[in-house]
């Protein structure tokens, strides 16, 4: 891969990452309730950050640094959803309900857990 192409790809990825991160921030501000905000903060942010990291890995001068960036991306993708999951569950248990509900599959489970 020629260096020019690599650099172009890296910038493209980073620009995409920046866009998704920006979108997620807008989502956090604009969305109506806790869950949608968590959703935007998790999905879009994880994706955006991963894209930025991938771009940075392509841009990196040596393979050790690239490997480290890949590792970071992997950890980010593993931990951020877990954190959001725990957060939204805690919110649900604390009695916060979404604005609009079509199906509530977690409710009965939570009740059962509470009985135990």
């Amino acid at each position: 891969m020629s260096p020019v192409l690599r650099e172009a790809l890296a910038f493209l990825l980073m620009a995409g990452g920046a866009f998704f991160s920006f979108a997620s921030v807008i989502g956090i501000i604009r969305f109506p309730d806790v869950y949608t905000r968590i959703h935007s903060g998790t999905k879009a942010l994880t994706g955006g950050a991963t894209l930025i990291l991938l771009g940075a890995a392509l841009y990196a001068p040596s393979w050790q640094i690239a490997a480290k960036l890949f590792l970071i991306a992997g950890f980010l993708m593993a931990t951020n959803p877990i954190a959001s999951h725990a957060l939204s569950r805690a919110c649900y248990r604390h009695g916060m309900r979404p604005e609009v509900i079509f199906v509530d599959e977690y409710g009965p489970v939570a009740d059962e857990e509470a009985k135990k």
């Binding site: 931990t79 999951h85 725990a86 569950r89």
Partner: peptide, 16 residues
């Protein structure tokens, strides 16, 4: 503790 997902996820992370 928290849910199964959280437990398993942290279980994988902790050694690192």
């Amino acid at each position: 503790g928290l849910s199964f997902i959280a437990k398993r996820g942290i279980g994988i992370m902790a050694p690192f």
